[in-house]
Structure formats: C-alpha cells, structure tokens
Design a protein around this nucleic acid. Sequence first.
DNA 1: GACCAAGTTTCAAATAGTGAAACCGACGGG
DNA 2: CCCGTCGGTTTCACTATTTGAAACTTGGTC
Lengths: 261, 261
Amino acid sequence: MAAEGHADGTVGKALDVLDMVASHGRPVRFSDLLTQSAYPKATLYRLLQTLTHQGMLTLDPDTGAYALGVRLVRLAHAAWAQSSLAPIARPYLDELAAKTGETIHLAQMDLGQVLYVDKRNAAKPVEMFAQAGKVGPAYCTGVGKAMLAYLPPEALEAALARQSFYRHTPHTLASREALLAELQAIRTRGHAWDREEHETGIICCAVPILSRSGRVIGALSVTSTTARTTLDTLGALAPTIKDIAAKIAAEAESWRFPEQV
Amino acid sequence: MAAEGHADGTVGKALDVLDMVASHGRPVRFSDLLTQSAYPKATLYRLLQTLTHQGMLTLDPDTGAYALGVRLVRLAHAAWAQSSLAPIARPYLDELAAKTGETIHLAQMDLGQVLYVDKRNAAKPVEMFAQAGKVGPAYCTGVGKAMLAYLPPEALEAALARQSFYRHTPHTLASREALLAELQAIRTRGHAWDREEHETGIICCAVPILSRSGRVIGALSVTSTTARTTLDTLGALAPTIKDIAAKIAAEAESWRFPEQV
DNA sequence: GACCAAGTTTCAAATAGTGAAACCGACGGG
DNA sequence: CCCGTCGGTTTCACTATTTGAAACTTGGTC
C-alpha cells in the first residue's frame, strides 16, 4: 500500500498521503505517517496541511490526529452515484437475488484488484454502504477472473503484474500460466467459476458486464456454499446471470450517454 | 460550486476539478469542463490527465468523457467507515428509529453546510448509500442549527459567512440576527427545533453530538410532519434523543482513541 | 479540399514545491 | 530548577514543477 512507483507531481503525492491515512483504520498522528512515508518532514507536513485545508482530511484538535475528511464523503456520494454501476444495477441485483436466493456480488476492476460496489446477501437483509467498497484479489475470485478474461492485452498484462498468486486454498490457481489457461476457458465458456479458489466451501458463477464496444465495465456473480449447492446447479443459473448482466450493460450505456447514438 | 476563493496550490486546483466533475451528474467532456472552469485549456488538460492517471477519474475511451474513478470509491469506503459517525452510530439510530417510529437523520458539519451521513426512514426500509452524502443548508435545518449553536466563535463566523439565508418558507429564519438569537435559545434549551423552516409541513427536533471536550462532532434529529405530530409531542422525545446522542458521543470517543485517557 | 471544433503538445517564464536545519513548547527526569 | 528530548511547526535559499499562449493534430462537415 506504500509501494509507490510513479507518484507524478504534487497531486500524486497528496493522493498518496490520502491513501496512507485511509489505510490506517483510525486517525493517525503526524509522526506515525512520517515514519511510514518516504517524504521528508516538512514536505509531509505541507501535504497534510493542504489536504486538511481542502477538507479532504480532518485534524482533530484534541489529539492532533488526522482522519479522512467530510469532503471525501461528499465526493463519495457522487462517485457512488455516477461512476459505479451500483445505482443502475440495483433493481437488477434485486431481481437476481429474488430469482436465485443466493448472495450476489457486483464488482468493478481497480488496478488489478476487484472492487465490490454492491451486494445482496442471501441470509441477512441489505446492510449499508459499509459492505461495498471492499477490495479483493482478481486472480482467485469469480468476478475477478470474469473481468480479467475480457481485458485487452495491455490492461491484462498490467493487471497480471499486480497479482500476488498467493495460494489461499488447495484450489487456487497460483501461477500466471494456470490463470491464463483458465481465462481462455472462461472466454469460450462465457462465464467464470470460482471453485473454492479463494475460500474453502465457497463457490460462485460470474459473468463479465461488457459495453457494446466490448470494454469490461464490471462483473456480476452468484455465490453459494458447497454445503448448499453444487457447481452444476449454479451453472444452470448462468444464462439468467448473463441476461441480467446484459440488461445492466445496456442500461449503463443509455444512462451514461443518453444523447449518444 | 464553482466559486473558488482559495484554491491553494496544485493540489487545490486538482481537487477543484474533481469537484467539478462530481457536480455534474454524469460523465463530462473536456470542453464542457473547459467552458465552466477558469483554468486555461492546457492547465485543465494536465490536471485531468494527472487525476485520470491517479485513478481518481476515468476517461471513457469510447466517448472521451470523464467520470469519477474507482479509487475515489475506495477512498470513500474508508472515509465512510472511519471518518464519519455513521458506522458507530448505526445501532443507536436503529434503536431511536424503533423507539420513535419517525425519520432519523445523522449529520455532520461540512464547511457551513450540513452533510447527512446516515438516515432511517419512517416509511420505507433503509435504502443504500445513495441516501447519505446529501448536503443541505445549516441555517434552516434542525441538525444544522443544533451544530451551529455549539460551534466555537471563529468556526461559527466562518459558517455564518457561508449561509445564503434564502427564505425557503414563511418560517425560515432569514437573517443573521434572527439566527443568532435562535442559537442562543438552542443553547439554553439544549435542543433545536425545525419549525417548518426548510419545508412546509416538516418539523423536527435535533440535538448536537458533542465530544467530551465540547467539540461539535455531529447532530441527530427526529423528523416528522405537522400532519402527524406536533412540536410538543416531538419535544417529549428530546430526552431520548439527547440520551442517544450522548451514547454515540461516548462510543465515538472510545472507538477513535481507545488508548487515550 | 478547405474549414471548424475538439483535443493534444510545445516551451520559455514564473510559480510553487522542496527539505535541511533551526525553532518552539511541552514533558520528564536528574 | 535546569537540561535533554520529542512531537510538531516554520524558515529560506534552491530547484523542479507548473503555467498558459500559441502552434499543432485529428476527425468530422459542407
């Protein structure tokens, strides 16, 4: 999380600092950040000041600790509403959840990682935003592989370079080669499996959400447990999932550019 | 929204651009932003490039339109979880909603504006994040006035300077003087009313959430309609609301700085 | 084929950012 | 009571980054 290769300009550094503050789960002191960051004291200080002044961070006067500011929450709202697929997809997720009775995930790709932007839980009722925004690995999740499979070569390369290939379970595809073969299989099959590759007992069927021009804009998955379902049963849902994914894609396109062709 | 007085440094400008993109409800073209912003072409172009490169914006290659990027969503999640009171307050909001059966708002102060960070709706079940993140005026809402009343002098001054004092309804306190008198009344009373000051027919009772040191960290309100309730009935709930606010304050403090005194 | 609009690149001048070091106030021994 | 230290803030000469007018592409239109 602190491994920076290319912090272009002052803006990059500032955002880097923002990430640093975000990565701690709680407000951080100046000195904590100082030891963690590569920036010299004065530079870090100024960056923090600027960010605070801009409302992206808050400096708690009682404790002298920095926390993420409210301006970020406000931007968050906008980001959530406009950038992510979540608001468009919501009714479709509901539909899919109702049809399947299983856990649904909606994800987007973020620099080689999977960002979950919305979710329907099989058991519990919907929780608030806290559930979304989580990130996960791409190489060993259904949604991750579904998106990787349809990435253009350069983007795929960039994404692959960021995979850890840690073997979470005995089923994890823990090498570049194994993953590439799997991606090929996904392309011919049209959907991706998660065969307990991330967590034992958890399986899922995922499909990519593609724009008309073939660009990956997200992925959709139905998750279950080996205790309750088999891959085959889940596979029977694939057409339904694809159908919903197509609807989401269509709506995303028309909603985002209504005046276009 | 485009009125900038103090865009310090490059970072300020970049964040300004970010806001500009966010303020449009949809992806924006370069030229739209250009006409709107004061920045010269090349400058704006570079800022957009940097932000895009940093993942804060996305450039849709099909249409050449900029939208908020996923990195922002990720930061958003962190901001939501750690900066705002929402996650801490959630169970208490539920409790208050159950007790009162009315609409509950949890808000924080953001540069003279009220930022709603969570909500319980009387009628409908809880919606997703989309509901939170909304901003509203401070001078004519219950939560806004509750927070203003307990702000230190300089902060109050800064906040007042940003109020529009637009007369939304006949009951709106549309002058600085009227508002100041009201704030004094709120301090002695311990809670704030909204007497149909923002919307006709909507009333509410709000209390500030204060840290042990007396700093304003948020506000909590119970809202209803004149059709259903009176101010007096709502006022009877004031002790309950204060109680919940105190609990939230206590938890916020212990959660954020567990190792402190 | 010339024209126009949108987007991208250039380059010298000017601004804004850098960071070693000095400074400050609070704390805690000795 | 004084001295050393620790977290945080400020200074200032040095430099790298940012700036923006203008030139240049690209792609679509008449």
